[in-house]
Every structure is written in structure tokens, then in C-alpha cells.
Amino acid sequence: MTYFLQNFVNALQWGSFYALIALGYSMVYGVLLLFNFAHGDIFMVGSYIGFFVATGLVGLSAVGVITLPYWLILVLTILISMILTAFVGMLVERVGYRPLRDAPRASAAITGLMIGVILETLNLIMLGAERYKFPELLQTEIYELGGVSVTNKKIMIVFVSLLLMYLLNLFVMKTKWGMAMRAMAYDFAVVPLMGIPLNTIAALTFGLGSALAAAASILFGTAYPVMDPYMGVTIGWKAFVAAILGGRGSIVGAAVAGFILGFIEIFSASVFPSTYRDLIAYSIILFILVFRPHGLFGQEHTSKLRL
């Protein structure tokens, strides 16, 4: 039982990252019907921005210019890098996606892929071969609860992720901008005719998704502090699977699917021999899709639109 509970806790943490990253994919996919394959690398950029912000703030406090407790530095780091990364996301949209608004969707997917490669390579050129260590802003504390090890980091990660998801849902459901996004997801062709500025909404969507990826990357940095230029690739592609699994345009769906993917991965490694993890985990995904071909929360849409 403790074994199960321990893995449950592990999966909760791991799933949070998939969920947060999947939200970015899902929003872009829902609103603009695009695969934003640069998203994993935006996650990576967010992590490095966070690294520099955090190191800068820690340095300033050390010199005594400002005196901040570490928890406040963490909060500030998350907020500042969310904002900065949002701009990076909008820039990617402006450069790589807006010129291709009327092109086949797959072309935009290729630009995204290539922007990702450029981001990785630029990072390698500018920062060199060294791996960076994300500053430790939260002193690890380990609590033993009936044989289950829980750290303060795990609790914070899950809590902050859920909070962000709740805020995002609130934004999309309750605000005017959110309504515009939903309308766009409902009908891409007609809604701009109603006076909704397409470019603004597109930028907003990319910005929000990137900000979430940045938040995810900082949380990620506290739990997995080794950074490298290719850190976003695998987790990005897997989160993409989660986003589509959730169903088109469903925020709740993407979040739930992210957690589900985390659980499937952790439990297939812990129940079966871990060598077979990917084999089993992705076979399960395949199996789910056979029975829910439109994703977990998606509505049926037969249109292929613009491809």
C-alpha cells in the first residue's frame, strides 16, 4: 500500500509538468488549430530565463542591494519569467506562425519545429557545452508519512500547478478575452468577421501558453535542477500527446490528460519491468484512443480545415 501511495505521489508531481505544458499545446491547437512544435523549446527557454532571473536576484540579495527571503525570490522568479517567456512565445508566433496564417497547417508545424531547433542551437552557441544547475531556492524538507516520502517541493509543485490551472480556467471562462478565445475555437472562419481581432487573440494564446510553460519550467527546475539545451524536446513531444489526448479545445481535458499520462508512465514503470515502460505506456494511450477517438473531453469534429 505504501508502495502504491508513494508512486501515487510521484505520479502527481510528474503529471503536473505534463499537464502544464500540455495546456500550452492545447490552447494553440484549440484556438488556431496549429501544432506548436516549438512549445517544448519555449519550455527550455523559460527555464534558462528563470535561471538568470533567479541567479540575479540571489546575487543581488547576497551583495545586499535588496534583501529578499528565498521563497519570495522563487515567487518573483516565476512571475518575471512567465512575463518574459510570454513575450518569447508571442515573438515566435509573430515570426513563425503569423506569416503562415493562410498556409497549410502542416507548414506551420514545420516552422515551429525549426524554430525549436534554432532555439536549442542558439542556446548551445551562447552558453556553451556546460550544464547549468538551477539555483536551489527551496531547501528540501522530507516528511515521512506512514512510509511515504513527501517533500515540501512536491507539495508546492502540485499546489502551484493546480492553482495556475484554476486561474487559467477562470480567465478563459469568465473574461471577455477568454470568451473571444472560446469563440475562435468554435469557429475559426466566422468569428473574425464579428470584429474579434484575430492577431491579438493569436498572440494572447501563444503568450498564455508560453507563460504556463515558463511556470512549469521553474517548478521543474526546483525538482530536476540539471538544465541543458535539449531538455524540452522529449517532455514537449510527450506533453503534445497529452494535449491531443485531452480533446480539442478542452482545457480541463488537457490538464486531466497530462496527469493521466504521468500516472501511466510512473505506474507502468513500477508495476512492470521498467525496461518496458514506453512500450506499455504508449500502448495504453493507443488503446484509449481506440475507444475514445476524439480524446477524453473532445467533441466530434469532422472538419479537417485548411490542410
Partner: peptide, 20 residues
């Protein structure tokens, strides 16, 4: 005798097994 795949970042499932 636990394994993972290149570029993996989370080893908690395997380590929990090892601890067990």
C-alpha cells in the same frame, strides 16, 4: 535491476522500487 531511457528526468518510479 531497473532501467530508464535516455533523456529521462524522472526516476522516482524506479527508485521507489529499489527502495522497496
Amino acid at each position: 535491476f531497473e532501467s530508464f531511457t535516455t533523456k529521462d528526468q524522472d526516476f522516482s518510479a524506479q527508485l521507489t522500487k529499489i527502495k522497496e
